[in-house]
Amino acid sequence: MTLFEIYRRLLFLAVGVYAVVRSVAFIWRWELAGRGADRTESLLRRYVVSLLVRVRALRFWWEFVQLAALAAILVFLLKLHRPT
């Protein structure tokens, strides 16, 4: 295994672990916030849901197009890699 291979695998491991930990923490925080049965918490939860539902996705269409293009380029580059 070459030095670059080691770097690639270590990077994958570090970034992967970081992404998983952050995502789990995020979901856990929201789960805790949404679990409260208090009237105020329930009201706040419903308000947050309504706030999210009212997001106008078309407002971010350009960002979505850019993300789709970048994702397509990434998939293409990954396909160009030779199987090791």
Binding site: R8, L11, I73, L74, L77, L78, L80, H81
Partner: peptide
């Protein structure tokens, strides 16, 4: 950044 790393790797 991921694309950049993929290009480097390629």
């Amino acid at each position: 950044v991921t694309i950049l790393v993929a290009v480097l790797s390629l």
